[in-house]
Design a protein around this nucleic acid. Structure first.
Lengths: 192, 192
DNA sequence: CCAGTTCTTGAGCTACAGGTACAAAATGCG
DNA sequence: CGCATTTTGTACCTGTAGCTCAAGAACTGG
């Protein structure tokens, strides 16, 4: 029924995600989006309704593609500390390899919109919650296997690891080299 | 020597800092600034030149007033761990007590502008460097007094603490309560 | 092949961002 | 007091943000 779409909406959201990720919400103009998606302005608004709605879809896409990837990495096998180190190092490498140094979109969104956009804030909150949950599960696994001390509360350690990881990704935005970030990873793993 | 200014430039920069801190750079309009500073648009541009120049001054003011306060807290006396805990808890309390939940302006600026504004990025980088340096000095003091293990590199631990503190302040932007953040502080201090 | 539906494009719209121009007003100086 | 100098308020300017709409193109069912 009706004329078929001439573009793939998912691909368009993907492109929008890349732009929002690089520039943030406020600094991204409809023209930026039109250029990146390769469709007319009318199509954009017809398909997505508003800049904000498109941002929301982009952020959900980020969650489903990027944020989950890290969590899955934590759930692999092998020594717990090795998994944690591998996951953190992957973040560092990804962040530094990105020519635009965009860091983590959830982190950037928290910093930019937490106070003004409750929908975005809630999405980010949940992403953080999921990540923290995965970290806590990893810690508990390590406690069971004897790799991690049982002295400290697993929940507290999980929260601390989330905090460190979030800080790591923010520092990656201004870091002038990999040394410091790698040190953070080592010190963090060693602290368990 | 000409007509004297009818407003205090430093007080104006202070107000501008509050606005930028709350809303970020891109989301702040000249009108917002005019309203907050209580001066005419002509005076604003005559005195500060551009929105960006005013932002830069606001960020420097943030560094000199806010960022240095934390560093000074670390340099007090008493047990090292107590000082660290007190400093981190103060951050948490301040961040949660703020009705606008603005978090740390340096962190927010890093997230918003690191990729697009080298001047701002450099300012933030230096703030982070100074904080990290203070944390490292604290760790070294703790090592000398026997409060902190000498197994791990002091520089690495200092970087890790910076990362955790930065993460903490970002999480404060979306946190729904104090529990989790307090857990992070305890786990961090206990990890030393 | 026509009716009804959905999509596309680009022009156009209102409001405001970000800044400039300028003349009036307020000073110190000789 | 006249003068140069600086500040102030307001009007004004250009460009663009963010969105809407009209006109038509591409489809489907009957």
């Amino acid at each position: 029924m009706g004329r078929p779409k001439q573009f793939d909406p998912e691909a368009a959201v993907e492109q929008a995600m890349q732009v929002f990720w690089r520039q943030g919400y406020a600094a991204t103009t409809p023209q930026d989006l039109v250029d990146a998606l390769g469709i007319g302005k009318g199509s954009l608004y017809h398909a997505f309704g508003s800049k904000h709605a498109l941002f929301e879809r982009a952020l959900r896409r980020y969650r489903d593609s990027q944020a989950l990837a890290v969590i899955e990495l934590l759930g692999g096998d092998g020594p717990v500390k090795d998994r944690l180190r591998a996951a953190l190092l992957m973040l560092v490498e990804m962040d530094l390899a990105d020519p635009d140094r965009r860091g983590c979109m959830a982190v950037n969104t928290a910093a930019e919109l937490a106070g003004a956009d409750e929908v975005a804030a809630e999405l980010v909150r949940r992403m953080f919650d999921r990540t923290e949950e995965a970290l806590r599960a990893l810690v508990e696994e390590g406690r069971r296997s004897g790799e991690i001390s049982t002295e400290r509360d697993a929940r507290a350690v999980g929260s601390m690891l989330l905090s460190t990881a979030v800080g790591l990704r923010l520092l990656a935005r201004v870091a002038d080299g990999p040394e410091r970030l790698s040190l953070v990873v080592e010190a963090t793993v060693d602290s368990l």
